[in-house]
Design a protein around this nucleic acid. Structure first.
Lengths: 134, 134
DNA sequence: ATATAGAATTCGGTTATACAAGGTACCTTT
DNA sequence: AAAGGTACCTTGTATAACCGAATTCTATAT
C-alpha cells in the first residue's frame, strides 16, 4: 500500500555508550526483555483483532514500553512466519489500519511459548527462594 | 595462575540454522533467558561462597542448563565490574578452585535486578491475565 | 489550500549474550 | 610415567532484538 521509492537517509547520530553502574542496570533490563515482547504481542493478538496502537497502549498499560520501530518489524516477522495475519480496516478518524489476528500455527506456537515462559518463571523463582526440587 | 600460550584454533564447524517451528521455539527460549543467567548467578553467589561446579549444579537443579563456556566468561565479567570477588581454595580431590562471593556493589546491583525481574514478571502476568492496572 | 494528526514503513546502528569447541593446568591413582 | 578426572580459560561466531529517527502516505480539520 505504501510505495517504496529508494530514498536516501541521513545516518543517525549515535550517542556513545558509557559504562556506568546505572547503565548496566538498564542494560540488564533490555536483556531480560529479549524474546518476551514477541510472546506478549502474540498473546494480545490471540485475544482478538487489534492494530498497532492498541498493542502499544496495552503494553504501556502493563509497564512494557515499546516503540514503533520495535513493533512494526516484529509484526512483519509474525506475518512472514505465518503466525499472524492482518486485514485492512477503514477508520472513521484517519487512515486505514491493519488489524491483526492469530493463525492456527500462531496458536500452536503460542502454546509452546507459554510453556517456555512458565518454565523460566519457575526456574528463576526456584533460585530466588532457594528451594530444592523434590 | 594458568599460562596462556598463543595457540591456533581451527574454525568451529557451524551447523546451518534451519527454520522450523521447533527451532523457532528453542530460539525463543534462549532469547527469553538472556540477561537472566547473570541475575541467577548473582543470587547464588550472594548466598555464600561457591565455585563454578556448585553453580552449574544448582542451576541444573532448577532446570536452567548452563555450560562452562557461558559461565566462566560471565564470572569474569562479574569480577571485572566489581560485583563479585573470589579466592583460591585448595581442594582435597583435585585442582584448586575459585570460590566466589558477592561484593557490596554486587549486592546493591542485585537489588536493582530483583526489581527489574519482578517488574517484568508482573508485566508479563498482567498481559497473560489481561487485567487492567487500577 | 494548508496544516495537523494518525498510521505504517524502513533502516542503520548498537549491543553483548550464550554457546560450541578446543585448550591448559593441576592432582591423584596405578 | 601415563592416564584420567577436575577445574579453569579463551576464541570465534551466530544472533537478532531492540531502538532512534526520518519518511511516506492518508484523512480530517482549519
Amino acid at each position: 500500500m505504501y510505495k517504496n521509492k529508494n530514498q536516501k537517509r541521513k545516518p543517525a547520530l549515535v550517542a556513545k555508550f558509557i559504562n556506568t553502574e546505572k547503565m548496566k542496570a538498564s542494560n540488564t533490563q533490555t536483556q531480560m526483555r529479549k524474546g518476551i515482547l514477541e510472546f506478549c504481542i502474540l498473546h494480545i493478538i490471540a485475544r482478538g483483532e487489534v492494530y498497532a496502537t492498541d498493542m502499544i497502549d496495552e503494553l504501556k498499560n502493563a509497564q512494557l514500553i515499546i516503540v514503533e520501530g520495535t513493533l512494526y518489524p516484529l509484526l512483519n516477522r509474525l506475518k512472514t512466519s505465518g503466525l499472524a495475519s492482518y486485514k485492512w480496516v477503514e477508520s472513521e478518524t484517519g487512515p486505514p489500519r491493519k488489524y491483526y489476528s492469530i493463525t492456527p500455527e500462531g496458536n500452536e506456537f503460542l502454546k509452546q511459548l507459554d510453556k517456555t515462559w512458565s518454565d523460566l518463571d519457575n526456574s528463576v523463582n526456584q533460585i530466588l527462594n532457594h528451594q530444592k526440587k523434590p
